[in-house]
Simulated assay, not measured.
Amino acid sequence: MMTVLYGIGMILRFILKIALLPVQAALTLLMLAIGFIGGFANIACGLIGSFFVIGGICSFINGDISLGWQGLLVGIVVAVIPQALTLWGAEGVLGLKELLARI
């Protein structure tokens, strides 16, 4: 009886692996899309953040300390958040793919 249940389990696992192939392919494409779009977003937000940082430094030079700190902080946040979202998104999809690969 145990051998029959084991055989049925192996057959069901094989069918499930075949059924999950399109999901794995879609997750791979999603991971590549996150990397591609994230690269563009990182470049654009890095440039915008650089302008804020440069503006903050110029504000420090002109004597407006509070505006200088605001420029520095906004520049750092604008440059870092898209990178974090890209990393977390890609790692989340990779974790999901690994979870599905264990089945």
Rank of each mutant, 00 (worst) to 15 (best):
I18N: 02
L85M: 12
L67D: 06
N42F: 05
T86N: 06
C45M: 08
I18F: 06
L16Y: 04
I15G: 00
M31H: 08
G68V: 10
A90E: 10
I34L: 15
R13I: 11
V80F: 04
L20S: 01
C45Y: 04
I43C: 03
I18C: 05
L67V: 13
V80M: 10
I48S: 08
A25K: 09
S59T: 05
A33H: 14
P22A: 02
G92R: 14
T86L: 05
L85Q: 00
I48E: 09
V74G: 04
I65E: 12
W88T: 13
G95T: 12
E91S: 13
V80A: 09
A33S: 15
F60T: 08
L73G: 15
V93I: 14
T28R: 09
G49L: 02
L67K: 11
I61K: 05
G56I: 05
G46H: 02
L29I: 12
T28G: 08
L30H: 03
I37D: 12
L96D: 06
I43R: 06
I18E: 04
I48M: 13
L20A: 02
I61C: 01
L85N: 03
G55I: 07
G68H: 07
V78L: 11
G46W: 03
F40H: 12
S59V: 01
L72S: 10
I57N: 03
G35L: 11
L30W: 08
A79R: 02
F51H: 13
W88H: 11
A41T: 08
V78S: 05
V23L: 04
P82W: 02
W69A: 14
A25I: 11
S59H: 04
V93D: 02
L96T: 12
F60C: 10
L27E: 00
G75N: 03
L85K: 00
P22W: 00
N62M: 10
I37F: 15
Q70I: 14
G75H: 04
I48C: 08
I81Y: 02
V78H: 03
S59W: 02
N42H: 04
